[in-house]
Amino acid sequence: MSDSFLIEYLPILIFFVIAGGAAIAAVAMSYMVGQQNPDPEKNSQYECGFEAFAESRSKFDVKFYLVAILFIIFDLEIAFLFPWAIVLGDIGMFGFWSMVLFLGILTVGFVYEWKKGALDWE
């Protein structure tokens, strides 16, 4: 690959530099401009005046994870749509129905999860 190919990505590089610069600037400025009077009590964890009893983590209901897992699956489904959308003109009716069948299989899954109540938030 030649360097000219990389030049196409220059806008993205500039974007990253600006984004990173802005983020670093925000932290650096507050560090430099703000007054800092550190003190052990100030830096310790604060929990209604007590020392922290335990870690802040607690068991969450598994339904949170279920939503995330189902999201991943549909996210993957979406990923298949991108190339399809680009070349739909070239691959003709067969390509169209091929995707419809694929979506149909996943729609069966969607009906299943809907009816099963996996999308309800009780």
Partner: peptide
């Protein structure tokens, strides 16, 4: 992907479906 590898494409649909069933 959607024509020559039609079979593979539909199989991956089934894999995703089983993943969905499994999660639930």
């Amino acid at each position: 992907l959607y024509t020559k590898y039609f079979f593979i494409f539909q199989m991956s649909g089934l894999v995703l479906l089983v993943a969905m069933i499994g999660a639930i």
